[in-house]
Computed example of a mutant assay.
Amino acid sequence: MIIFILLLSVVGFAFTFVLAKKSWQTGFGIVCGGIFLLSLVLVTANFVSHFGMKKVVETESIELVSSADGLDVLLYKPLGDGSEKVYLYQTPKSEEPTPTETDHVTNKVTEGTSPELVTETSYWDYKNDFYKLFFGIVNNNHEFIEAENTFNVPASWEVLSVDQMKEFGQLAKERQASFKEKAQKEIQTKLMAAIQKDPTLATDEAKKQTLIEQWTAELQAKMMQDLLNEVK
Rank of each mutant, 00 (worst) to 15 (best):
D72N: 07
L75S: 07
V109H: 04
F17P: 02
G112S: 08
V31Y: 01
G29F: 00
L117I: 11
V10R: 00
G80F: 03
V57F: 10
L37E: 07
F51A: 15
S9F: 00
L37D: 08
K108N: 11
L79N: 15
V43L: 15
L19H: 09
L64T: 01
A20Y: 02
T59A: 12
E95A: 13
P115H: 13
S114V: 15
W24H: 11
D69E: 14
A14P: 05
T113D: 13
E63F: 05
G34I: 01
F28P: 02
L6R: 04
L7Q: 02
L71S: 10
Y87A: 02
V43P: 04
G27C: 08
I5T: 12
K22S: 13
E96I: 13
E58W: 03
G52P: 00
L88A: 00
L75P: 07
K108V: 05
S9A: 14
T91H: 08
T44Y: 14
L79G: 11
S114F: 07
A20G: 15
E58D: 15
K21T: 14
V48Q: 13
L19Y: 08
L8W: 02
V11G: 11
I35W: 00
S39M: 09
S66R: 07
V56K: 05
L7S: 03
V118K: 09
E116K: 15
T106W: 04
T100P: 08
V65T: 11
G27Q: 08
H50V: 09
K85F: 06
F47I: 14
I35E: 00
K93Q: 12
S61H: 06
T100K: 10
F36Y: 02
E58T: 13
I62Y: 09
S39Y: 08
D69K: 15
S94N: 13
E58F: 05
G82I: 06
G33W: 00
G82R: 04
T106E: 13
T98F: 09
V48R: 10
F28M: 08
G70S: 10
P92Y: 01
S39N: 05
V105N: 09
F17A: 09
T100G: 06
S67E: 04
T16G: 07
V86G: 06
T91E: 07
T106V: 12
K54W: 04
P115Q: 08
F47P: 11
T26F: 10
S83M: 08
I35M: 02
A14K: 10
Y76K: 03
G80K: 06
E58K: 13
I30W: 01
L40H: 03
L37F: 11
S114P: 01
L7N: 01
L6P: 00
N107I: 09
D69N: 13
V56T: 14
K55D: 11
K108C: 05
E84P: 07
I30Y: 02
S61L: 12
E58N: 14
E95P: 07
G34M: 03
D72R: 07
A20L: 04
E111I: 15
L42V: 05
P97T: 03
L71A: 10
T91P: 07
I30H: 05
S39D: 03
L8D: 00
V11M: 05
G29W: 00
T106H: 11
K108F: 04
E60D: 14
E58I: 11
T119N: 04
T110C: 08
G80V: 05
S49A: 15
Q90L: 12
D69I: 11
A20P: 12
F17C: 11
D81H: 11
L37Y: 08
P97L: 05
T16M: 04
A14W: 01
G34Q: 01
V118C: 02
